[in-house]
Write a protein that binds this DNA or RNA. Structure first.
Lengths: 220, 220
DNA sequence: TCACATTTTTAGACTTGACTAAACATTTGA
DNA sequence: TCAAATGTTTAGTCAAGTCTAAAAATGTGA
C-alpha cells in the first residue's frame, strides 16, 4: 500500500516521462507537484529504495516495471472516476479533475473494477484520454495529432484535449468545441501560428497556437 | 477543511455521545479509534482550540454545535457511500464499512449531494441507519427497540443493526436474517438471556444475548 | 577546456499525528 | 474519609513529508 504522496510522485514521473520521452528531472517533478526540488530528492530516494524508480542524476528519474504498473493503475482510477462523475453525476468535464485526484487514492481491492463494470467498461474518459484496463493496457489512439499540425482544408474531429484545467475546458465550451466536434482548418497565420477554423456551428473561429497544440484531432 | 484524523475523532466523539447520552471519555475515544489515551488528549486539545469540542476532564468530551454539524456531515457521507456501494455496485452489506470510511473523507462542495440525488434521496443505509439530510436532520425511527427487549409472541421485523462489522453481518447472513425479516420470540432463556425466535424461513433459531442487543426491530 | 548557470543534494528545522513511560488527578468503594 | 482503581496529562521520541539555505555536482556554451 502506498501513501497518497508516493502515488502522486509516481504519477508525476510517469506523466512527465510520457510527455518528454525521457526521464523526469527532479526540477520538473517539483514544478508539476508544486513542491521543492529538495523534497523531490527525498521522495525519489524512497521510491528508489522500494524499487519503484531509478534515478540517474542530471538525466532524470524513470519508473521500474513495478512503478509503471502502479502509475497506470492510478491513471485508470483517475479516468474511471472522471467518467463516473460526468456520465452519472452530471458534472461538467471542467469540474472533475481535482475531485478525481482525491478519488484516485482510495484503496480497495476491487472498487474500481466494479465501477468499470457498472459503467460498461468505457474506453475513454470525458477528455478523450484512453482508460487503461486492469492490466494497464489502453487502446492506442492511432492517427491522432494536434490540430496545429493539420493541413488546410482537411476535415477532422476532436478526439482529445491535452489540458484538463478548468480554464482551458471552459474556453472550449465557450467556443462551442467538444469531443467529436468536426472542424476544418481554413487559414493559417504564420505571424503567431494561429489558425482560423470552421465547424458546423461556427465559421471563422480564430484559435491561438497554444490552443491548437492542446487539441488532439483525427482525420475523418 | 479538516484532516481525516480530525474527522475521525469528531465522528468518534459524536457516536460515543449518542450511544451513552454523556460526553465521550478520552479512554473510550482511544478504544474506538484503536489509539492511545495520550494521543486523544493531544487531539482533543486541538479540537477545543478550533471550537469543535469541549472537554470536562473525567466527565467527557462533547461537541460544540459546529462540531456536531461536522459529525453529521461525515455520517451523511458515510451512509450515502455505503448505500451507493450496495445498491449500485453490488457490494454485500458486510463489505462496505471500511471502504466507506475512506470515501467519507473525500472533500467536495457537492459530490455527496449529487450522489444523493442520483440515488433518489435514500432515507436509510444498507444497515438500516437513517441518512442525515443536507442540514444534518435524519428521520427518527420511532418505536424501534432491541430484539432483546421484545416480549414473547409479538411479531416484529428487523429495521436495523447496531454493529456493522463484517463478522456480525456474516453471522446474520448465515442465519438468514436481514433488514425486513419478520420474527417472533418463542422462548426466552434466563440462564444467558438468549432467545429462541422463528422467522418464515426458519424455526427454533437460538440467538445469544449480544446478537439480540444488536438487532433493532419494530413491532408490526 | 573551463567557468558559470543550472540541477541536485545535504543539513537542519518544522508540522501532524502517533507512541511509551511516567506522573498526576479524580472518582468511588470500603 | 481515604486508598485503590481508573482516567488523564506530560515529557520526550518517532516517522512522514515538507521547507529554507547552503553546498556540491554537472552539462554546456564560448
Amino acid at each position: 500500500m502506498y501513501s497518497s504522496a508516493e502515488e502522486n510522485y509516481i504519477k508525476a514521473i510517469f506523466t512527465i516521462s510520457e510527455k518528454t520521452g525521457k526521464g523526469a528531472s527532479t526540477t520538473a517533478i517539483a514544478q508539476r507537484l508544486e513542491t521543492k526540488a529538495s523534497s523531490v530528492t527525498d521522495m525519489v530516494k524512497k521510491l528508489n529504495e522500494k524499487a519503484l524508480a531509478d534515478h540517474r542524476p542530471y538525466h532524470g528519474v524513470s519508473l521500474t516495471d513495478q512503478g509503471r504498473q502502479i502509475a497506470t493503475a492510478i491513471i485508470r482510477k483517475h479516468r474511471l472516476w472522471e467518467t463516473f462523475l460526468v456520465n452519472h453525476l452530471n458534472y461538467r468535464w471542467d469540474e472533475v479533475h481535482d475531485l478525481a485526484e482525491q478519488l484516485e487514492h482510495i484503496h480497495s481491492p476491487d472498487l474500481i473494477d466494479r465501477l468499470d463494470r457498472f459503467m460498461g467498461h468505457p474506453k475513454f474518459d470525458p477528455h478523450g484520454d484512453p482508460i487503461p484496463d486492469r492490466d494497464g493496457k489502453m487502446v492506442d489512439v492511432a492517427g491522432a495529432q494536434p490540430l496545429s499540425e493539420v493541413p488546410k482544408g482537411v476535415l477532422v474531429h476532436i478526439v482529445g484535449v491535452r489540458d484538463s484545467s478548468p480554464a482551458f475546458l471552459k474556453l472550449l465550451d465557450g467556443l462551442g468545441l467538444k469531443l467529436g466536434t468536426q472542424l476544418t482548418v481554413d487559414r493559417k497565420f504564420e505571424y503567431d501560428n494561429s489558425l482560423e477554423v470552421s465547424s458546423r456551428m461556427r465559421n471563422g473561429l480564430l484559435l491561438n497556437e497554444s490552443v491548437c497544440e492542446k487539441l488532439t484531432v483525427k482525420i475523418l
